[in-house]
Computed example of a mutant assay.
Amino acid sequence: MKDPKDKKLELGRYIGMKVKKARRNGGLKLVDVARISGISQGMVSKIENAQVSTSLETLDRLCSAIGLSISQLFSDYDRPDGDAHFTKSNQGLEVVQRGTEKGQIYQLLSYKHATIEPFIITLTDTSETTTTFSHSGDEFIYLISGKLVYRHGNSLFEMEPGDSLTFNGEIPHGPESLVETPIKLLSVISAQEDS
C-alpha cells in the first residue's frame, strides 16, 4: 500500500510538470507568469519543481496566467494504466481448433480478456469445408480477403471482402464452400461467462 505522502509527492510532480509544459508551450518565462499572476517568481519555480504545495486559489491564478484551466490541469491525473493486449501483424499465437484438422489455420489475436476470443482464420484451396462447428456464446466474423459461402443453420451467406456476420455459436456453422482462395477472416467469439 502506498504511503499517502508518496501520493502528495506524485501530485506535486504532476502539477509542476503540467504547469511548466503549458508555460513553455505559451512561450512564457517565469518572470512573465509572476507578473501576470501576481505570484512571486520564486514561488512559481517551486511549484514547477514540486518543492512546495500550493492552495487552490494560487493554483487557479497560476493556471489563468498560463492559459490552462483547472480541468485541463487535472485531465490526465490518476488515469488508469490500462490492460490492453497488443499483437503485431502475423504474430498471433497459432492454436489448434476443430478446423485445424481440415487445413484451416487459426491465429489467436488476444488471450488477455477471457470473455472474447479473436482469431484470424486462413483457408486455402487445400482446406476442407465443414459446417458442424458449434460453441457457446456469440460469434462475429468479418471477411478480410477471398470469397466464400458461409452456413449458419439453414441459412447460406455469400460473403465478399468487407462483409460481416454475427450469430449464435450454438447453432452449427462454418464455411459451406470456398469460392475464391486464399481466404482470411476475422472471427471474434464472445465466451459465455459462468454465473
Score class of each variant (00 low, 15 high):
Glu180Cys: 00
Phe119Pro: 07
Thr58Arg: 05
Gly16Trp: 12
Tyr14Asp: 05
Asp194Met: 08
Leu30Glu: 03
Glu101Ile: 03
Leu185Asp: 01
Lys88Gly: 07
Lys8Leu: 15
Ser136Tyr: 03
Gln104Cys: 01
Leu30Trp: 05
Asp76Ile: 03
Ile116Ala: 08
Ser110Pro: 00
Ile120Glu: 06
Leu186Pro: 02
Lys21Tyr: 07
Phe133His: 11
Pro4Cys: 00
Ser55Tyr: 09
Gly42Cys: 01
Gly103Trp: 03
Ser136Met: 04
Leu156Phe: 08
Thr132Gln: 15
Gly38Lys: 08
Gly137Asn: 00
Ser55Asp: 01
Ser145Gln: 14
Phe74Met: 12
Asp3Gln: 09
Ser145Ile: 04
Thr54Ile: 09
His113Gln: 14
Leu186Val: 07
Glu180Phe: 06
Ser145Val: 11
Thr54Val: 14
Glu57Gly: 12
Leu108Phe: 02
Ile171Val: 15
Gly27His: 05
Phe133Gln: 07
Ile105His: 00
Glu193His: 13
Leu108Pro: 02
Val96Leu: 12
Gly174Ser: 09
Val188Cys: 01
Lys20Glu: 03
Gly162Pro: 12
Pro182His: 06
Gly146Thr: 04
Ser45Lys: 07
Tyr111Asp: 15
Asp78Cys: 02
Leu28Asn: 09
Ser40Cys: 03
Thr115Gln: 14
Thr129Ala: 11
Met43His: 14
Pro172Ile: 08
Val19Thr: 10
Leu93His: 12
Gln41Gly: 03
Ala50Arg: 11
Thr181Trp: 01
Thr130Val: 01
Leu11Ile: 14
Thr124Gly: 01
Ala191Cys: 08
Ser37His: 10
Ile121Tyr: 09
Pro161Val: 02
Asp125Asn: 13
Ser110Arg: 10
Lys7Thr: 13
Thr166Ile: 13
Val52Ala: 13
Lys8Gln: 14
Asp6Pro: 03
Ala114Glu: 14
Ala50Tyr: 10
Ser134Val: 00
Glu117Trp: 05
Leu186Phe: 15
Ser136Gly: 11
Gly162Ile: 08
Ser37Val: 10
Gln107Asn: 14
Gly103Leu: 02
Gly137Phe: 00
Glu193Met: 12
Glu158Tyr: 13
Asp125Arg: 13
Val31Gly: 00
Ala34Arg: 08
Lys184Arg: 15
Ile141Tyr: 02
Ile189Asn: 11
Ser195Pro: 10
Glu160Phe: 07
Leu186Glu: 06
Phe86Thr: 03
Lys20His: 08
Gln72Asn: 12
Phe167Asp: 01
Glu57Gln: 14
Ser64Tyr: 03
Met17Glu: 13
Ser89Cys: 00
Asp3Pro: 00
Leu11Ala: 13
Ala84Asn: 10
Ile116Leu: 13
